[in-house]
Design a binder for these strands. Structure first.
Lengths: 98, 98
DNA sequence: TGCATTAACTTTGTGATACAAAGTTAATGC
DNA sequence: GCATTAACTTTGTATCACAAAGTTAATGCA
């Protein structure tokens, strides 16, 4: 049986899962880009980003030239945790398709 | 981009996802079996089962002979919804592994 | 016959949290 | 100096996961 206890709750939430998926598929995303793509409110998006940062899954890069811009990206441990999470998804897919 | 809005919230919760995965992998499960496997409290388990029933994803079969026993199984639309959910998981895995 | 046991619930309470709306700060360009 | 914009923070609400304890009805045994 699949060990559902291992399913990372920080990642397994629609909003954060979508963020993680985006960050995993392409290196860096601006706050505005994430907001546009995911159609989240500022407050909701930043809150999710904060909890991902708190979990050390996501870090930021500030652009100093020009307008204030913050870019978000996965940390090493964020990549690792997401990979592990995907492993579980694969197991679920395999189990469910049997 | 993956359409995360389509991600079925009724299924996408750890407890209910584990129930759905079990029901998808084998036809029928007794309440007690689910409880033992998933290590959930009575209250928590039945609540999740209820919401799955409310969504018409799960139905029951009562055994009349002997001790009171309730068996749970996926409905046709439960199978369909789960299949659709798995399709999305596959997309996430594909996207995340790229 | 009645009592303990068990399955399958229901009820209740609590704590966590997703989400939106509105306000704040600081920098830019006109 | 004033409007605009990005990136926040704060606040409030509604939902909901989960546990604990209580309820009901049936069984099997003393």
């Amino acid at each position: 049986m699949i060990d559902f206890d291992k399913l990372d709750k920080t990642i397994h939430e629609k909003g954060r899962l979508s963020i993680m998926t985006m960050l995993a598929s392409r290196g860096e995303w601006k706050f505005q880009e994430l907001k546009d793509q995911l159609k989240m409110s500022d407050g909701n998006l930043i809150t999710h980003l904060r909890s991902l940062q708190k979990a050390s899954y996501v870090s930021t890069k500030k652009e100093l030239k020009g307008r204030k811009v913050t870019k978000y990206l996965l940390t090493r441990s964020g990549k690792k945790a997401f990979k592990e999470y995907l492993r579980l998804l694969e197991q679920i897919v395999a189990q469910g398709s049997s």
